[in-house]
Design a protein around this nucleic acid. Structure first.
Lengths: 183, 183
DNA sequence: ACCTGAACACCGTTCAAGT
DNA sequence: ACCTGAACACCGTTCAAGT
């Protein structure tokens, strides 16, 4: 049941955010009462943190396979962007931690910590990827470029979701690549 | 009182989002009862829409002065990015319509429409700015570049806010400029 | 014209009670 | 071990009542 709740809650949060998630709506979707949800997750913060933790762990595992599956940096970035594109494809949803990042200052501390861990994980992964390049910058430059790439992709997803048009995402990514922001 | 309410509500939404705004908190801040807020704004959607409308109108006016004050495209973009930077400087707040964009699918229709109008306004302004360049692309290319610039700046603000570090914003903008995404 | 208190259905949360 | 109904303080909203 615990996993059933997480599986039901994830797409709800990806669509409408953490704040909009209701224990009663979630309970109804899985066929129990809202007070029963508290048996598995004492507080909404516990649920949100578990949601973000699992999402981050799964993302980390996928990113590892991605990095080891191809030596080509451009191909890796394309498949990295495809992760965020896939969320939009699924009923115009967002990255769980991207939408929660917007609620950052309104999140319970335990949820915020997991969201921050997702961001850190992505920045580290991008840094490792960029470190493969021959045309190296300093370590500091690589970190800043990783930051810029992550911010740009999250922004593209946010704006594309708002416009309800996945082409907005694709065109933004294409413009990033054309400019050389993406390797 | 109507304007007092709007002035008090704006920074609250910029900090924590539309969903987190409470009529009772807002009422207490301005010294009336929550039921009195409904006299000025019948529903929370009315308040949110008025908030976004005024924000967009003020933004539009400022962008016009910006565009006519300098013929230099790079200077205009720098001052454009400075608008978003200023929000972060003010207690790590976000663009009102940037944070509301994350709540997009959970907003009352009337609020969503105003948020979308802000986005449209910004894209049009950026398109006009980019049209000044000699090294022109097609009209379609310019629109896509405007989109990418807007998404990238919004993303930089979102991630910088999450990290609680305005340097994240500055470094992202610098990376955009270095790549040539920003003119 | 503007404000208020009381009521309503929602929300997260608690807890005694059930199986 | 897992679920439930009732209660609590919150929320947006309504409305009769006040000035």
């Amino acid at each position: 049941m615990r996993q059933t709740l997480l599986d039901a809650a994830r797409p709800m949060v990806q669509a409408r955010g953490y704040n909009a998630l209701s224990f009663r709506d979630l309970a109804e979707k899985v066929g129990i009462k809202s007070s029963s949800v508290h048996y598995h997750f004492p507080t909404k913060g516990d649920l949100g943190a578990a949601l973000a933790r699992q999402y981050t762990d799964e993302g980390a595992a996928y990113l590892e396979t991605l990095l080891s599956s191809s030596p080509d940096i451009g191909a890796c970035i394309t498949r990295y962007a495809a992760i965020f594109r896939a969320a939009l494809e699924r009923d115009n949803r967002m990255c769980l931690c991207g939408i929660m990042a917007a609620e950052h200052d309104d999140l319970p501390a335990q949820v915020r910590e997991e969201v921050d861990r997702f961001t850190t994980l992505n920045l580290q992964w991008l840094t490792r990827l960029l470190s493969r390049r021959r045309s190296k910058g300093s370590q500091g430059m690589i970190g800043k470029q990783a930051l810029a790439i992550y911010a740009a992709i999250q922004g593209a997803q946010l704006i594309a979701r708002g416009r309800g048009d996945i082409a907005v995402f694709d065109e933004s990514i294409a413009a990033y690549r054309a400019a050389g922001l993406l390797p």
